[in-house]
Amino acid sequence: MIQSIGFGLVALCMLATAIMVVRSDNLIRATLWLGGTLLATAGLYAIVGASFLASVQVLLYVGGVMTLMIFGVMITRRHEGLDVPAESTGGVRGAIAAVLLFVVLAAAIDKTEGLDVLRVTPPTTTAELGRALLVEHVFAFEVLSLLLLGTIIGAIVLARKRDLGAAVRALHAPRPAAEIPAPPPSASGDDDASSKVAA
């Protein structure tokens, strides 16, 4: 009973914050609302007995990803301050599509049998998880480490100062752009500034 009440509360929190994430007019706030959603998810993990996942969720997601996101928002802003608009359009269209998707998913869940189980398994211990991770799934684990390494390198290459953006600008440059296109004067200043921040 208590568990059900907990689930209800957490679910409410999660959906409310999620809607704030997609509806908030301020990008910084939206990011912070996402933190709320993730925290609520961590709470749900704890309720269903996946305590390790809950802690990982808090550490990695709320700590790491959130920080990264905030950084992302900050370094791609010209202005100081928290007034970062997060424009949205086509709300009706998006809502219809989202509701449609939800209805279909709900119908699928409704039609699938054997989902009305109450939790019966004992809580998962960290030792169990660790053993599974490093014995059973050790190969996938190693591959994942390679992937992360590749991601680090890829992200650095993409965000380096020597900007691939020049190629994109060349597309927008006026027709006779046979030589290396000089960046438009207004953009070049910002360009330098941003790269300084990136560095």
Partner: peptide, 20 residues
């Protein structure tokens, strides 16, 4: 939750918001 994410994906115009 997923549907809310899809809604955001369809309506947001800022790349960072889409990432969210």
């Amino acid at each position: 939750l997923f549907s809310v994410g899809v809604y955001g994906l369809l309506t947001r115009r800022q790349v960072v918001a889409i990432l969210l």
